[in-house]
Amino acid sequence: MKHLIARLEPVIWALFGGGFFVGCLLMPAFIFMLCIAAPLGWLPEGALSYERAHALAANPIGRLALFVLIVLPFWNGANHLRHFVIDLRGIRSDGVVAPACYAAALVVTGIAAVAVGKL
């Protein structure tokens, strides 16, 4: 398992980096739209209606965007959590922590895939 993870490090890092990127770039826009602009009524009437949002999300590009948006931050979190635990508990904990973190991220990835597919 340790060697498998070592072999996959470049991929994990890419997912982690992607999560960081997505989180930094898109989250503020998301928060602005949903938590500030919408309650303050800055958006046009019906902009966030279920129908519009569903149409946007169910579009193939929308599905992909949503999937990326959900999954990558989880990988970012999983990798961060793993290194955080190593810093706290030492490298020996990594044998358990790394598989656990990445397995969790993998499960989320699966769930997200199914959920996005069913939209």
């Binding site: 060697h3 070592a6 072999r7 490090e9 470049p10 890092w13 290194h83 190593i86 810093d87």
Partner: peptide, 13 residues
């Protein structure tokens, strides 16, 4: 760099 013990071992400290 991609091998075990390469750049991805770095924990961004």
């Amino acid at each position: 760099f991609r091998e075990e013990g390469g750049v991805y071992s770095c924990s961004y400290a």
